[in-house]
Design a protein around this nucleic acid. Sequence first.
DNA 1: GTCTATACATAGATAGAC
DNA 2: GTCTATCTATGTATAGAC
Lengths: 194, 194
Amino acid sequence: MKQPVKDKIVFTALVLFYEQGIHHTGINQIIEASDVAKASFYHHFPSKDDLVDECLRQYGAIIADQIRSLVAESGDLDTLIRNWVARIKAGIVDTASYHGCPVANMRFSLMLDSDQNIREKFSAVIDSWADILDAFIETLKKDGRIAHTIVTRQLARRMIHIYQGAVVMWKLTGDTTYFDDLIDIAHELVGPPK
Amino acid sequence: MKQPVKDKIVFTALVLFYEQGIHHTGINQIIEASDVAKASFYHHFPSKDDLVDECLRQYGAIIADQIRSLVAESGDLDTLIRNWVARIKAGIVDTASYHGCPVANMRFSLMLDSDQNIREKFSAVIDSWADILDAFIETLKKDGRIAHTIVTRQLARRMIHIYQGAVVMWKLTGDTTYFDDLIDIAHELVGPPK
DNA sequence: GTCTATACATAGATAGAC
DNA sequence: GTCTATCTATGTATAGAC
């Protein structure tokens, strides 16, 4: 059973865009690597931007799934935080293949800060992540398994915030301890148990 | 008195690289905008990479100066944090010309996470920023104007960390409240006065 | 140091036969 | 849907006269 052409293209693009960045990955390379004819590519994606759009959606969904499984395996906030950092660190072990958050990378590639269209697309992705964390924390609160002083949505936002910060710091310095530091920072943000 | 050719090139590059990103700014555009002959450009900068290198140094120095002046006008940690965020917000008022941290932008443009050379260059810039904050916080501690539970270097690192995180979140969502949030987050990290 | 002209590669995208 | 060939623009960089 052969893989549909479109799927082959997208899969290849997801890998190459993440490894090399969007602007350093040409259409020609994607076409060659996915073993597809040039005209076939343009049949499915009228322009490179359309492919980039599709990849953004996929990256967003992939991370959302990771957050979901992270939540599923964590019974409380402390465990969530530890598992979270553990996963990140595990992903960096093979340091050559880790390049940070694919969504943030893509956002920086575009570099059009005033484009409202772009803003909405990325904003939707971030919201979808925050929603998952949000729901988890809210559940903990209802079950009385958490200090009620926590502002749910705010904590969800801040977790993503400090995560993105750690990625940038790692990219800037190569220092992986910024990820370890996430545990302490997250605990400070959660505050003392009530 | 006419400006040296090299300075004109660098100044133009600093502006264009920041506005458009490195890979969306061609040598030709820089040459045209700085009103210099092509051969003159290559006389001063054998390749684009050399110009990029010079710009990184300049960006780093510019931000370092901003941090220095921020420190100079702040007598305590609380004031520093407030002034810091106030300055960022002021810079975003004209939203069309703000594009986040020029050093982080440049780092994301390069996209070569395993290149040790690049890592060292950026790391040096971040260290120079941390050094300034470090010295300031250390002084406050010695003067007894701060809770001594603070780990100086760690706090300096974390301030840069959460700042970079806020920039990314802003870039991803267009939401400027992530910068306001820096005040609360920073205070949590500083902890209660002893 | 500056000028014009140009080389050379790669980018994104299209044409037209099959 | 696929194939090869090609268009056109742009990118980095160099040559050679002044």
